[in-house]
Design a protein around this nucleic acid. Structure first.
Lengths: 348, 348
DNA sequence: CTGTTAGCGCATTCAG
DNA sequence: CTGAATGCGCTAACAG
């Protein structure tokens, strides 16, 4: 007795207005609800005739699918949580941009989460977003709480870990060899003939990737018989201003420094701009190298030598790998090294 | 007959592993499922004793709520779609950052959508994200297709439109008086004594806010008896490189220009850096003004005069207004002017 | 304060 | 190719 059912419905409905549902469309088109569902999701399984009728009804009623209901019934939504440590850092912005563009074109939505470099927040965030039955998850880095790793593994859907490469990852891993990249810049500076080479960073307690680079840097220097312990840092977030400050602090503390390996381009750029202001000649008095590949680096005078990370591509690639798995095109866990590139310019 | 029900369940389940459900927790704690639901969502409505038992069960079973199911039952998820024109523009990044931080602290998640400045994509995106039964929506700007506006209005939940202020908005409006901001910089240049003042932009076909600023700029100039038609543009996305290029093009076409009003700081910064490289003296040969308030502006030499937009605060405020409405703290539509600030520095 | 009942709107069986 | 029946996991309503 459909009419009775309908009457009940009107009474029960939680939220005022009657949103158009699949059932309304079905009734209007004179077909079963499931046919509407199929016409929308797998049109090739429905005859042209019925499909047209359904499309017509959808249009005239202004039907918009309830993705939540669909998600519950099919135990999955076309949502991909992307978990990053911070949104104030340009590195991750570019990565997110690549992910977002790729996923949106494939009909998925990005759910943004940031952890502020706190693994406990990350754990809570993961628990929470898994509650949306997402199709997959994209995480930053390989450092997570064991419980987070276990949960993600047990979950069984595609997970990409992004940024640095490692041997132990949950499911898929895209990124670059972070330590090597640090060693690469250090070697460059050594080869250029600099002898008092310092590493300058900010927020290195939280940013373990920067720490990895420093360790690699130190090793390179010591292997060359140089002092690898010249390290200056503070715990501000990375910014031009922070770069300016550590730069001045370092020069004051160790005036004989002849080259600086900065933890990232933001800091290095701040230093170059300050050097220009103070008339400190780069690279004659002090050489400056960075890490990231910000476009700003090419516009400074002198142009900044830096290790260029393919940030946008990283995002794109991560999203593509996820999509491939979701489409069943790719079965096994994989690891993709996107490589970095040393851009040698006038600052060193 | 619970055991029979359970047996059915195991057979039917779509996706392999048995995820822990509310029911499992309820059984473990010896209470009704609704009690678990309440203990989790409205703990104050449950006795301490039962609440503890539930919390215990949740912990030992590792229960993670299915937000999709909850969303379906309660016709709403703690998700806020944020629709921006582009992720490659720093303006919106800062805004998103503010939104994200505020919402995440209040237990909401940001669903990111970008339209690429296409109102049809925007319409499709809005339709799609409304399917997730979000708690509210944050949109960029006041320009939308009529159908988008109608749908959002009919939807009946909080909607914030962000960036520019206007008289006709859907529900709530946070931003700054864009045209005034453009007039402000133009007035500043006029007052400084410049006479051949050009406006330089990129992508202005899509970026109507930049067009508004240009119109205001033109009006100010003409009212001062100056030529307001000096406009140079191309359709690249905003970048240092694009700024460098329009800058050189404009100087070549009109060598007598004595001041430039750039559509944004990215362009202006590109121009200043190019000027430094070429030995063009700023502001003596040509003055340069920007719009946005990028931190970079303060580190250039000369420091860039610009109109500072409170981008982060805009995001925070939009999110707060949404949260206030969701909490029933605020009832009526509102409009908040966050104001801009002219930062006069050495480039003009 | 706690429980019972009855769906939310859709997609997955399984039949025809 | 189409449909009927059923339940995804949770919460709103209403009793007790």
């Amino acid at each position: 007795m459909p009419s009775e059912k309908l009457a009940n419905r009107e009474r029960r409905r939680h939220q005022g207005e009657h949103r158009v549902t699949l059932e309304d469309v079905a009734r209007h088109a004179g077909v079963a609800p499931i046919t509407v569902s199929r016409a929308l999701n797998t049109p090739e399984k429905v005859s042209t005739k019925l499909r047209d009728r359904v499309d017509q009804a959808v249009k005239t009623l202004g039907y918009v699918p309830n993705l939540i209901a669909g998600g519950l019934a099919s135990a999955g939504t076309r949502v991909i949580p992307v978990v990053v440590p911070s949104l104030s850092i340009l590195t991750f912005i570019e990565v997110i941009h690549g992910i977002q563009q790729t996923l949106e074109n494939a009909g998925y939505q990005v759910l943004l989460g940031s952890t502020d470099y706190d693994l406990n927040r990350e754990a809570a965030l993961v628990d929470s977003v898994l509650g949306y039955s997402p199709s997959g998850v994209i995480m930053t880095g390989l450092h997570h709480r064991d419980t987070t790793i276990d949960r993600l593994r047990a979950w069984g859907r595609p997970v990409v870990e992004l940024m640095e490469l490692g041997t132990s990852y949950i499911d898929m891993n895209v990124g670059v060899e972070t330590s090597e990249a640090g060693a690469c810049m250090a070697s460059h500076l050594v080869e250029r003939g600099y002898r008092r080479i310092a590493f300058l960073g900010t927020g290195m307690d939280r940013d373990y990737r920067a720490r990895y680079r420093y360790h690699a840097h130190r090793e390179v220097l010591e292997r060359a018989g140089l002092d690898g312990s010249l390290l200056f840092q503070n715990d501000e977030p990375a910014s031009y201003e922070a770069g300016r400050r550590v730069f001045l602090e370092a020069l004051e503390a160790q005036p004989d420094i002849d080259a600086i390996h900065f933890a990232n381009d933001n800091l290095a750029a701040g230093a170059i701009m300050e050097a220009n202001r103070q008339g400190i000649r780069v690279p004659d008095e002090v050489a400056i190298g960075g890490y990231l590949g910000l476009s700003l680096a090419e516009h400074l005078t002198p142009r900044l030598t830096t290790v260029v990370l393919p940030r946008f591509e990283m995002g794109v690639r991560a999203a593509e790998m996820l999509l491939d798995r979701l489409a069943g095109r790719e079965r096994h866990a994989q690891r993709v090294d996107l490589g970095y590139r040393l851009a040698v310019r006038e600052s060193t």
